[in-house]
Design a protein around this nucleic acid. Structure first.
Length: 385
DNA sequence: GAGCCTTTGAAGAGA
DNA sequence: TCTCTTCAAAGGCTC
């Protein structure tokens, strides 16, 4: 479905039915955009890069002055020209030292961006893709391959693995314990995990073998992994708000309705599978941070967004395919899960507040600022005054 | 400490 | 069917 081969890539070949139409659409669109993209890359990348760089300079270096206000379009534009002048010379080199196919050329780094900060142990695209087979046959499951790097160890020390990484890691054992410290709910952990890790596919039949060591209450209830004695969650599962559960004696104080509501609220959240860009971002974030000594995710994401567009079709196809695999795996792990489950949980933002204050200027989900701001909000329960 | 910012893509909701 | 909205990650920042 995801026509990954159509682009002459060869990265595809997955024959699954879970391909998202978006991929095809994306590529179709890019078929046209690609020209622009290539033109962009070939003709004037430095200009764009310089602009981006300058804005980043404003944000990162000039943050104290408050000249660059992240999130406010046009903010810091005054300082931009100055920064442009300063940064134009180095921008392209510094931000995009990779005119070559990016993810696989870690060895090339702009000198000014490699001030000893870059560490190849950080999750890199290479690392991720090493777990991802070249799709030699349709319907085949990926064979775990030895990673080039020893560990996926982000700077903060907590392994951040995608589903695919997680389940295909040849050394999955330590991950759950570490992850659980930060973001994973561990409902039924037993001390006898070592043997559990080594379980073979068994009932999980078609999943990679490493999947089997993972179970979760939701899984055990609904995914055909009945009777597993222990649960080892994976990165997609986090406790709500990352908070500790109430102690039993606390619960006794609650009314039944309250406890029920609480119980509902305390259900571990199953996160959405990462899309292609998210996977790409996760891979390249550390690299950008290292190269440009940036830490603000907003700025980093801007860079990554541009880099994403600068990627070749084949390179993007890798991530689309990877994302498709993640979705497939996610689907298998949580058959009953729907994105609806998390809908509205996170963003209870005061949209009314925003609309009141920025009528006409609020950025929509597509990152643009629609002129017709008077468009009626589909649901605004609080607008009754 | 919750939420914002910023990106793209997937998917849900509603017209 | 189309448009709009929300959520995925991330970490500094603001209130």
């Amino acid at each position: 479905m995801p026509q990954l081969d159509s682009g002459g890539g060869g990265a595809g070949g997955g024959g699954d039915d879970l391909g998202a139409p978006d991929e095809l659409l994306a590529f179709q669109d890019e078929g046209e955009e690609q020209d622009d993209k290539n033109r962009d890359i070939a003709a004037g990348p430095e200009r764009d890069l310089a602009e981006l760089k300058s804005s980043l300079v404003n944000e990162s270096e000039g943050a104290a002055g408050g000249a660059g206000i992240p999130g406010v379009p046009g903010a810091g534009a005054g300082a931009r020209s100055e920064a442009e002048a300063l940064g134009r010379e180095h921008a392209a080199q510094r931000l995009f030292p990779d005119k070559l196919p990016e993810p696989l050329e870690d060895g090339l780094k702009a000198p000014e961006c490699t001030s000893g900060m870059y560490k190849e142990t950080v999750y890199s695209a290479f690392n991720l893709l090493m777990h991802y087979p070249p799709a030699s046959g349709a319907g085949q499951h990926p064979q775990p391959q030895p990673p080039l790097h020893k560990a996926n160890q982000p700077p903060h020390g907590v392994p951040q693995l995608s589903l695919y990484e997680h389940f295909n890691s040849p050394h999955p054992t330590p991950a759950p314990a570490d992850i659980s410290q930060k973001q994973v709910h561990r409902p039924l952990q037993t001390p006898d995990l070592s043997g559990f890790y080594s379980l073979t596919s068994g009932s999980m039949g078609q999943l990679p073998h490493t999947v089997s060591w993972f179970t979760h209450p939701s899984l055990m209830l609904g995914s055909g992994v009945p009777g597993h004695p222990a649960a080892i969650p994976h990165p997609a599962i986090v406790p709500p708000s990352g908070k500790q559960e109430l102690q039993p004696f606390d619960r006794n104080l609650k009314t039944q309705a309250e406890s029920k509501a609480e119980k509902e609220a305390k259900k571990p959240t199953i996160k959405k599978p990462l899309n292609a860009f998210m996977l790409y971002m996760k891979e390249m974030r550390a690299k950008v941070i290292a190269e440009c000594t940036l830490k603000e995710s907003a700025a980093i994401n801007q860079i990554l967004g541009r880099r994403w567009h600068a990627l070749s079709r084949e390179e993007q196809a890798k991530y689309y395919e990877l994302a498709r695999k993640e979705r497939q795996l996610h689907m298998q792990l949580y058959p009953g899960w729907s994105a609806r489950d998390n809908y509205g949980k996170k963003k209870r933002r005061s949209r009314e507040k925003h609309q009141e204050s920025t009528t006409g200027g609020k950025r929509n989900a597509f990152g643009t600022y629609p002129e017709k701001a008077a468009a009626p909000a589909p649901f605004l329960p609080m607008t009754v005054l």
